[in-house]
């Protein structure tokens, strides 16, 4: 069992007899300590997609899946192709199954591919990834307060916020759980 707040895209929840693949996990800080976790999930048996909500402290059953270290090779349409570096075997995963994880996948990165009944269903990301800022507005002069952030689009399409001193082309560290800027 693990707390709902710890779940992220790629994890599997067991609810009754259903296995649910988390496609998107959104944490919202409520009043006092009553924070919530909104999860977009895909039922692995029937394929239905649903949005569910939990208290951040709710305990959910996580299913541990088989995993294989593979390199993300390239994207082919909406399919992401991964290669086992030892056997050169390739596996494909669709964007639908990867959910928000697509924003953190860079070609040549080696990550864990998760398998259910020997079929790839998701990936497990490292806690942080390095991404290049593709576009961000130039800083406005005078607006230099301590925690001031500006919108930025990363090379993978992720929209997030970065400090004013960041520019196009900078490589920044992004938290794969929250999508937030961590550092340079």
């Amino acid at each position: 069992m693990k707390e709902a707040s710890e779940f992220r895209a790629g994890n599997i929840i067991k609810s009754g007899n259903d296995l649910l693949l988390v496609l998107k996990a959104e944490y919202n800080k409520g009043a006092r300590s009553a924070s919530t976790m909104k999860l977009k999930t895909k039922n692995l048996e029937v394929g239905s997609i649903a949005e569910t909500v939990y208290r951040a402290t709710d305990k959910l059953d996580e299913v541990r899946l088989d995993r294989r270290k593979m390199q993300f090779s390239y994207k082919n349409g909406d399919m992401f192709v991964f290669m086992d570096q030892a056997t050169y075997e390739t596996l494909e995963l669709s964007e639908e199954y990867l959910g928000d994880n697509v924003y953190y996948l860079k070609e040549e990165n080696v990550i864990d591919v998760l398998l259910y009944n020997e079929k790839p269903i998701s990936v497990e990301l490292p806690p942080q990834v390095d991404l290049v800022i593709e576009y961000t507005e130039p800083a406005v002069q005078g607006n230099t307060g301590g925690k001031v952030l500006k919108d930025a689009r990363m090379e993978t399409g992720l929209m997030t916020q970065v400090p004013l001193f960041c520019h196009d082309g900078d490589v920044v560290k992004i938290d794969t759980k929250t999508g937030e800027y961590v550092g340079r």
Binding site: I13, S15, A31, R32, T36, K38, E51, V53, R55, D58
Partner: peptide, 28 residues
């Protein structure tokens, strides 16, 4: 029934189900 808030995200979780894995159904 959660705390009152004017934040936009509350609309996204209003009336969403919280799976219990049991007979009862639970909603926010």
């Amino acid at each position: 029934i959660d705390h009152l808030s004017a934040e936009k995200w509350i609309e996204g979780i209003h009336l969403k189900e919280s799976l219990t894995g049991a007979k009862a159904k639970k909603f926010f």
